[in-house]
Computed example of a mutant assay.
Amino acid sequence: MNRFSWFNAVSLTFGFAFLYIPMIILVTYSFNESKLVTVWAGFSTKWYGELFRDQAFLDAAWVTLRVAVFSSTLATILGTMAAYVLIRAGRFTGRTLFSGMIYAPLVMPDVITGLALLLLFIGVGLDRGVLTVVLAHTTFAMCYVSVVVSSRLATFDQSLEEAALDLGCSPAQAFRLVTLPIIAPAVISGWLLAFTLSLDDLVIASFTTGPSATTLPIKIFSAVRLGVSPEINALSTIMIGIVTAGVITASVISKRNMVRQRREEQAAARAQ
């Protein structure tokens, strides 16, 4: 039975148009000669040159990249540890409280999280800068990593780990040699999710950053308040290009892995 009706086709078309037409307009006007982003005055790439000569944007991009790398790495380590405890430790005293504390940032408004972290940093006398932004992003990103890794550990065959223990591995060796390679795709997915969330964050970073650690979203938001500049269009186009390249690369790698796995299964079937 064909379930793809005209209503579905129209809905899908409007959905994709709503999502991608603004991006197409943004990319088009990033090559505009005019300073006015709504008036086309000819094709030009000068705003890309202006962008790479704007030291403020470059500094903000470097801060954002450093914060994203460090916070996503810490969030991945802590989130994986938390997921392992929740799935493998069974029932223990305080498990409900521990689980609630792990998943609370998922439902907590960003404003509340940012304000709470700001009060914490002021209370302990920690100057706001790159370190405070890293700690803040780690706090809210580790719960996403924990959810992703927990879903993989819940379906993990523990007999493989038990076999490694029976063969003489210590628990740490069994985790490093058996468990971690199997859950590696979930761990990598959690890291990428945490990295993306850190790059995208504006609200929490605005509470926890200082004058010496302006992130790119804060810089863009401050610039847009004074009017949209063609440099922002150029910057957004570069970011769209990077994301598109990443998605295409991931799709190609995933497809190659599926083809290789299918070939290995066929070779194993022939050998039998």
Rank of each mutant, 00 (worst) to 15 (best):
S11D: 00
F16V: 13
A17K: 01
F18I: 02
L19R: 00
N32P: 04
S34G: 12
S34L: 10
K35W: 03
V37Q: 02
W40R: 04
S44M: 07
T45S: 15
Y48A: 05
G49K: 11
F52I: 04
F57G: 07
L65E: 06
V69D: 00
S71D: 04
S72Q: 07
S72I: 05
S72W: 08
A75F: 02
M81H: 01
A83Q: 02
Y84N: 10
G94S: 09
T96F: 15
L97Q: 07
S99V: 06
G100Y: 09
I102K: 00
A104K: 02
V111L: 11
L115K: 05
L117Y: 06
L120K: 01
I122G: 02
G123E: 02
L126H: 03
R128I: 10
R128P: 06
L135W: 03
H137Q: 12
H137F: 06
H137S: 02
F140P: 01
M142R: 03
C143Q: 07
S146G: 11
V147R: 12
A154L: 11
S159Q: 11
S159R: 13
E162D: 10
A163G: 09
A164N: 04
A164G: 12
L167D: 07
C169F: 12
P171R: 09
P171W: 08
V178D: 05
P181D: 05
I183M: 07
I183H: 03
A184T: 14
P185A: 08
A186Y: 06
V187T: 08
T196Q: 14
D201T: 03
S206E: 08
T215G: 11
T215Y: 10
L216Q: 11
V224I: 15
R225C: 08
G227C: 06
S229I: 01
I240Y: 02
I240C: 03
G241M: 11
T244F: 13
G246I: 10
S251D: 12
R256C: 10
Q261A: 15
Q261R: 15
Q261N: 15
R262G: 13
